[in-house]
């Protein structure tokens, strides 16, 4: 169930609906201010397996906010209010630091998309399986969906928006070699996985240039200085799924870019 609100909200499909409710409330509620229940009391209830009692109490407390949220046209039943943990965090994305107030649960992916308006990085599975959310952290490719925003504080984050040679690319010459190669080789169909593919390919080429191995390097006996053969490209790009099946063109694009060519 995808929550709908008439204002931006952290869209976390796998989180419970309490997220949405939290977001509607202004100002955000801190755990300590939430209600009269002391932390000890909550602990006591939890110890006795009385989580439903906590939920019931919070549901009653949240009911006025619930009525307000329903007025926003949100779907059906919304569970109890949960305590949230908010704090400020400074994220340095594509060289620019930005300070945000975020819920501790916010993934780097949601911070980028929902709080920084950088929608180039895509949410596919949200579980580290598809690679659509791939970004570079300190030059290394990672899944931003499994990276908590707070964990990436202090690091250099590079997204697809920061890959081109200029901040406002107008021509293919302004793009990075990998971006240009994907264009020239038609390395996509629908394009949804493409930002993740391009970031991942950028890192894959760097890794190979540094002599890093894949399992194919071991199995092909090239465990001194691996070459970026098509088998190597397929293995090294296996963390990025393309549901359109544009793989042959993706391999061609990565092969071309690794040789310093776009076409």
């Amino acid at each position: 169930m995808t929550p709908f609100t008439n204002k931006p909200s952290p869209s976390q499909p796998h989180a419970d609906n309490t997220e949405v409710l939290t977001d509607v409330l202004e100002p955000r509620i801190c755990a300590s201010e939430l209600n009269a229940e002391s932390a000890e009391e909550i602990e006591e209830l939890e110890r006795h397996g009385l989580l439903s009692e906590i939920s019931r109490r919070r549901f009653i407390q949240a009911s006025s906010a619930l009525a307000a949220s329903l007025a926003f046209g949100m779907p059906g039943f919304i569970e109890a209010q949960e305590a949230t943990h908010n704090a400020t965090v400074t994220l340095k994305v594509n060289g620019k630091p930005q300070t945000l107030s975020l819920d501790s649960r916010t993934s780097l992916l949601d911070a980028l998309r929902e709080h920084m308006d950088m929608t180039g990085t895509k949410k596919g599975c949200d579980h580290g399986q598809c690679g659509a959310c791939t970004v570079l952290i300190d030059g290394r490719r990672v899944n931003s969906c499994l990276t908590l925003a707070f964990v990436s504080e202090g690091a250099e984050i590079t997204t697809i928006e920061g890959l081109a040679k200029t901040s406002d690319p107008k021509a293919i010459e302004d793009l990075s070699a990998v971006q240009a190669a994907f264009l020239m080789h038609d390395g996509y169909q629908c394009g949804y996985c493409t930002p993740g593919q391009i970031i991942s390919a950028t890192a894959a080429i760097t890794e190979q240039q540094k002599g890093e191995l894949s399992i194919v390097s071991w199995h092909s006996g090239k465990n001194d200085q691996p070459e970026l053969t098509d088998d190597e490209i397929r293995e090294r790009m296996s963390g990025n799924i393309c549901r359109c099946g544009a793989y042959p063109n993706i391999v061609a694009a990565v092969r071309a870019a690794s040789k310093g060519a776009s076409a």
């Binding site: 690679g131 990672v142 499994l146 894959a204 894949s214 390097s217 963390g239």
Partner: peptide, 14 residues
């Protein structure tokens, strides 16, 4: 070999 048989490059970086 065992490490490189597991997960994806992104996950292994993390």
């Amino acid at each position: 070999q065992a490490l490189l048989s597991g997960a994806s490059p992104q996950l292994r970086n993390m």
